[in-house]
């Protein structure tokens, strides 16, 4: 049964093996580069833990302050405090950015006595509906931005802002 491997065969197997190994060593990085976008892990966005329980939220927007720790601005590291207006719409949690779309002031819920169920910008009397939609006829030109929201262990996590999806 013993089948002799001839010298020629042995040489060709060895060369094929080594050659294949070298070729793969060259090709693998190239293939990786080519399909890199597929391999990229989806960045979930850094969600920030807030001290607030989701059960405690209601239909009325409340102000939630949270701090982004160690944000890097080039070589400059700082803690950035941020604010969101958060409320529940049925079971979904909605978090809106307080930054006015006009010139960037901070808006307040019910800041205007005449419109207690709207967001109000004290700078130029801009108003927004509860879902962030800008009231026509006031200075803002677009709806308030929305935060990405995540709920984990009953606690609220806030992510990055995105253009309003409710309007």
């Amino acid at each position: 049964m013993s089948k002799k491997v001839s010298r020629r065969q042995f040489m060709s197997y060895t060369l094929m093996g080594v050659g294949g190994f070298m070729a793969s060593g060259m090709l693998m990085p190239m293939v990786r580069f080519a399909i890199d976008p597929v391999l990229q892990t989806k960045d979930e966005g850094d969600f920030i833990h807030t001290q607030h329980k989701v059960d405690e939220l209601s239909e009325t927007p409340i102000r939630i302050d949270f701090t982004i720790k160690d944000r890097k601005d080039a070589w400059y590291k700082s803690d950035v405090s941020n604010t969101a207006w958060v409320y529940k719409n049925g079971d979904t949690v909605i978090a809106l950015s307080p930054v006015c779309k006009h010139l960037g002031c901070t808006v307040n819920w019910g800041g205007d006595e005449k419109h207690p169920d709207q967001f109000f910008c004290p700078c130029h009397a801009g108003r927004y509906m509860k879902n962030g939609d800008n009231v026509k006829g006031t200075p803002p030109l677009g709806p308030l931005d929305e935060f990405d929201v995540k709920v984990e262990d009953g606690f609220l996590y806030l992510g990055k802002t995105k253009p309003n999806t409710l309007v």
């Binding site: 002031c105 901070t106 910008c121 004290p122 700078c123």
Partner: peptide
């Protein structure tokens, strides 16, 4: 400086 910076963020547009 803390106070004026805070006022600035609140009333940035004015």
């Amino acid at each position: 400086m803390h106070l004026t910076t805070f006022i600035e963020t609140q009333f940035k547009g004015r």
